[in-house]
Every structure is written in C-alpha cells, then in structure tokens.
Design a protein around this nucleic acid. Structure first.
Lengths: 183, 183, 183, 183
DNA sequence: CATGAATGAGGATTCATTCAT
DNA sequence: CATGAATGAATCCTCATTCAT
C-alpha cells in the first residue's frame, strides 16, 4: 500500500534525523535506515525532500496533539488543566524523544515554530483561566510561548541527559507556572 | 591583517546563516556575501568549516555575555538582578537578532545548548537569591533552563515577527519569573 | 550491470594512469577517458579513490598471476621452470605494458611491493630447486627480490623504449639467472 | 645566500617526500618541514615545482655518483670493481635511505630511469670486463639494467624493513652477479 | 511498485603560484 | 629576501532527482 511505504519512509527519516542529525539525513542514509535498496523509492513516494520533511513534522505534531488532548480534563478547571498539559508534554517528550527531537530539528531548520498547531489550544486554556478568575491578567501569547519554550528546553535537556528525572521536572514546572499564572 | 579578515568572514557567515539558513550557508555563499573572490580564502583563514562555525558561536556568545554583564547590578539584590538579566536578554535579542539567530542555528544543529557558558552564572544568581531568602526553594537547574528556554522562545518569536513589542515582552517575562521564583 | 561498469572504469583508470601518469589520473580525467558524463558515477561504483586504485592493482596482479601460471611446467624441473617464469614475465610485460605500468605506478606510490602475491610462488620455486640439488645455496628471499626487480627494470625499459627486442631480453635474463642460481 | 636557501628547501622536500610520500609533498608541507612561514619563498627560489623536483633528483644522483666513485678501485680488475660497485650501492642505500627513496619516488613518477647518469659508467665497467676476458659475452645494456634494478629492489626492501641485514645483501648480490657475469 | 544506474550541480578543501608590503 | 594574504583551478565526494527496466 502506498500509505504503508510512505509511513515506513517517514519513520526511517525520523530515526535517521534523530541518530545522525538533520544535516546528515540524506536520502541515501534514510533509505539505508529503511532497508530500501534505492533512494529512487523515496523520490517516487514524495514529491521532494521538502515534502518528506513536512510530513515528519506533520506526523509528530499530530501524534503530540492527540497525546496531549487525551490527557486533558476540561472539567478540572484551568489551573489543573495547565498542570495536566505540562505533565502530558513532559511525558510525551520522555516517551517519544526520538520523534520529537527529529520533528523539532526540522521545524527549527525551517525557522517555523515547531508545533504552531498547539499554541492556539494552549492560549485558549490560559484565556479560560483568566475568565474564570483563576489566573491573573498576563499577556496570553507571551505566557503560551513561555510554556512552550520551557517544555522545548526540557526536551533538549532530555536529549542530552537521557536519565534526567522526569517526575521532578514535571513537578518543578507545574509549580513554576502555577505561581506564574495565579499570581 | 589576519584578525580583520577572519572577523569579516565570520560576519559574512553570520549574515548568510541569518539570511539563508544554516543549511544553505556554504563557503561559496559566505564568500559571495563577504565579497571574496574565492572560497579558498575561507579555508586559508579557518582550519575548516567547523572552526568557522565555532567562531560564530563563540563571538556572539561573548558579545552576549558582555552585553548582559554590563547591565548587571549586583548590589540591587537577586530579584532585581534577575529582572535586569531578563531585560538585558530581551534587549540583546532585539538589537542583535541576526547575530543571535545565526549563533543559535549553529548551536542547535550541533545539539549543544546554545550558550552553555551563561547557565552557570544564571544558576549562581538563582542560588544567591535562595540564600538571601528572597527566592523560594526550587530546583535551580530547572529554573535556569526555564529562564534560558523562555528567552530562546522570545528570540524565535522576534525572528518571525520583527515588530513585536519589546517592552511588553520584558515586563511580562520579568513578572512571570518574579512570581515563579518568589512564590 | 554493476560489474561491467566497474570493469569499464577500472580499464579507463588503467589507460589514464598509463597515458598521463598516476598524479594526473584524477576522477575527472578517468571519467573523460571512460566516456562518462560525471565523476559522480565513479564514486557511485567505488567507495573511494583508494578502492578504485586497489582494484587496478588487484586486477592486473590476477591477470599477471594467471598468465604466468599458464606457462608453468612443473615437471620440467626447477631450472627450466625459472626460465619459463622469466619468459612469461617478459612476455606479459611486453603484451600488457599499459596495464602493468599502471599497476606498478599505483603499487609504488603506496610503497607496497608491487605483486607481493607472486613472491611466495617464486621463492617456492627457488627452494624446490635447492632441494633438488639443481640450484646452489643462496638466500632465497634475496634471489626472489632480484628476479622480481630485474623484471621490474625490464618493464621500465619497455615503457621508455617500446621497440626493445623482447626475445633478446628473455634470453639474456634467462641465462643471467641460470648462471646465478646454478653456480 | 641564495644557494643556502635553495639547499635548505631541497632538503625539506626530500624529507617530506620520504616521510609522507610524493603525492603529499605539497609546497605547504615542504615549507612546514623547512620551518618556512610561506610557500611563496619556495616559488621565489624555484621556477616551479618541477624545478624543485628536478633538483631533488639531481642532488641525490650526484651524491650517489660521488659516493660510488670514491669506492671504485679501477686497478682491481673488472670483477672486483663490480663487487665494489654493488657494495657501494648497498651501502649508500643503507646510509642515505631517506634521500634515495625520495629521489626514486620523483624519478619514477616522471617515468625516467632513476639515475640514468650512472648507467653509462656501469656499462663501461661491464664492457671493460668483457674486453679483459674476465666477463662472458652478455648484452651489456641488459646486464646494466639488471644490476641497477636489483639494487633498486634492495632499496625498496630496505625501505620496508629497516633492520634488514646489510652485509648479507651485499654478499648475496655480489655472488649473484659474479656468477652471472663470469659465466 | 521497486530497482539501481546515471546525472550534474554543489559541497569543502588543497594546490601552486602571484604579489604587495 | 621574506612574508602572508590572495587567487582560481582542481581535487574527491555527496547530493536529490530522473529514468529505463
């Protein structure tokens, strides 16, 4: 099936980027990772390298969004939801380090904010908290960027130090933003 | 003079990376930017592409550190100092977007934390605040990463949207971390 | 077919080395000789220049060994066999000057004895002759080197003077070593 | 003095060729070996790389010829003189391995018989031996090439195995050619 | 669909040589 | 004389992409 091959190649691209870095993720190396005998197959299934890279970002962003969405509990109130959001982020970053790392590499190289899709949701959550009176009045966009950035930074730390204490990060960050938002 | 040419080439590298992206910052393009007649001249002045890239990061990191250092006021107390640190960061990012962007591109591609040199200083500041009783007890390393990451995120935003309101960012972030640290 | 192209490139390499010298046998010139449209094709078929050069030596050494082997007559006795060996060498050098010249160029540049593979066989022949009592007692290794070197020298002469009298060389050398070995 | 600098550069060229191989003996490396701070100086003192290489061969060939000449004893008779010639050759090769190796590398790359200058002298010696009746009638040119080639081969062996037994080689080769010439 | 050969542009780097100082 | 900067051609090699089979 067309879709299966595409998926296989995307996976190989992710693995290659994570293992060797974006700069060394050539079609040749991706094909080798995928066990394909020709780079021609990649060109056949993707319009160009750009499309393959776009798909890498798109796939991981979708997985990420789904993962986070699953762990939301809209009825728990904004503060609890923010904590859940942070926990879900750290958990995803920890469980799918490779995928996230690859997607961020690509997104950064293209100078696009990694998972733009996510930001509106996060901003909405923050705005809701302000309406409920649970959050103080801050610039929602700046706070959203802040949350996003900090989670990004944690991922980088996880990339460098695989044995970092996951639970500790979650607690520290949840507290940090609890204080920062609730004033 | 040796130093002048090296500096010129480093500047051209910075401009090229900022304008075209790290992936497209070849010796040919850097030489063109610098107005050199040959890529050979770059190789003459630098041991290899790696050295040139290292110098880009080193130069900007040094400028950045000096800029921030100048704006410190050690006698103002940790909280005020943290605020000054954040302000200096945002100001540098705003005034030297191009340079910072280029340096971060390189540092990220090498999967090295961008300006690692800075982190110890920041961590020291945070620890001092805790000793003074001005800051609550948080994990200093996580908080340092958080500050760093958020400033990183701001830079990215600045890269995308050149007209962002600088003062607003500074105020928002200063408040954010004031709350987060003082508890 | 993979093998055919490789063979074609090896042949082109041999011709180029023989015609222009090893130092000028670049991929570009080899590709031109072979009628290829790109040096990239050479890189596609060989892991690197080293591999191509190794194959040049390996191919010619194999042809040479086969040629000599065919002309051996183990039942004729060591003295006659040595003569046959010398004759085969001169004949090969004469008939395949180009190939031998190229292979020796490469082997020499790498400071490896040209056809090391051959030496053991030659040494064996000499030792057999000593056991049979047909040869006097000399240092087998030195004599092997001597035979090899003289044949090398003849090739060089043949390279410079294409019209040299083949038969005369064979006779002279056969007599020379007959006397030298039989004492 | 002009001559002194030239000599210094030639020596550096010899050392570089011997140490790194002809292919890697660039002006840059030769200048480094010589302790010069610019390759420009080499170009100033030599019309081109060709001239420098020619001088390497010329110098060593002259030293070699002088060395051999000193050890000749024209009154000892052709056979003894040939033995002395061989001994002198092996001795020179052993004492000045580096220089000889470099010169031969250059000469071979240019497909010129290494020390053509020497051959006439050797041929004369052989011819004299035939006139005296001490040598049998062989083709003088072939025998001269043979002697030369064998000594070449010995040098190569010495290059690979620095601890080879010098005296043994001399004895073996002297005997070899005594038998070969006297018949 | 898949293969592997082919293409040609572009990559960093090394080279001998020139020249102003 | 000596220096070191500059030049531009040439080096091997990798790349994404195309195409016949």
């Amino acid at each position: 099936m067309r879709t299966a091959r595409r998926a296989q190649i995307i996976e190989a691209a992710i693995d290659t980027i994570a293992a060797e870095g974006l700069a060394r993720a050539s079609f040749a190396r991706i094909a080798r990772t995928a066990g394909l005998s020709s780079t021609g197959l990649i060109s056949y299934h993707f319009a160009g390298k750009q499309e393959l890279m776009d798909e890498v970002v798109r796939l991981v962003a979708a997985e990420f969004a789904a993962f986070v969405e699953e762990r939301r509990d809209a009825e728990a109130g904004p503060a609890a939801e923010l904590r859940a959001f942070i926990a879900a982020n750290v958990e995803f970053a920890s469980k799918h380090r490779t995928r996230l790392l690859a997607a961020l590499d690509v997104a950064r190289a293209e100078r696009k904010p990694a998972f733009q899709v996510d930001l509106p949701g996060l901003a909405g959550l923050l705005r809701a908290g302000q309406r409920h009176g649970e959050f103080r009045f801050f610039d929602v966009d700046v706070m959203a960027i802040a949350v996003q950035s900090v989670l990004d930074g944690v991922l980088n730390r996880l990339a460098a130090d695989q044995d970092a204490d996951l639970g500790a990060y979650t607690e520290e960050l949840a507290t940090l933003f609890e204080l920062a938002t609730c004033g």
